[in-house]
């Protein structure tokens, strides 16, 4: 059981590392931002699996806080991409 969870955890971490490829490589700025957005969501999965593995529920708190901050970051970057001011 815990062995299997370990394998799943490694796969999930591997997926997020592959996402990093798009952040580093991405030919344009929006590509990098897409990579960062997806990476932010994947981290929540990592947190959830770790919380099952260690049986400690506070890691979920970290996951929720992470998704909130990642969401704000994505919105801010999207605002930057549209190139408009605050009041337009």
């Amino acid at each position: 059981m815990s062995n299997y969870l370990n394998i799943l955890l490694y796969i999930q971490i591997g997926i997020s590392v592959v996402c990093m490829y798009r952040i580093i490589r991405g030919p344009t700025i929006p590509d990098r931002m897409v990579g960062a957005d997806i990476f932010g969501i994947l981290v929540v999965g990592i947190c959830a699996i770790i919380s099952i593995q260690t049986e400690r529920s506070f890691i979920l708190d970290i996951g929720i806080a992470w998704i909130i901050l990642s969401f704000i970051g994505t919105l801010t970057l999207a605002k930057y991409l549209t190139g408009k001011k605050l009041n337009e």
């Binding site: 929006p30 931002m33 957005d37 970057l77 999207a78 930057y80 991409l81 549209t82 190139g83």
Partner: peptide, 8 residues
């Protein structure tokens, strides 16, 4: 993001 990309 997709809207921003289009406007970018």
């Amino acid at each position: 993001l997709i809207r921003g990309t289009y406007h970018f």
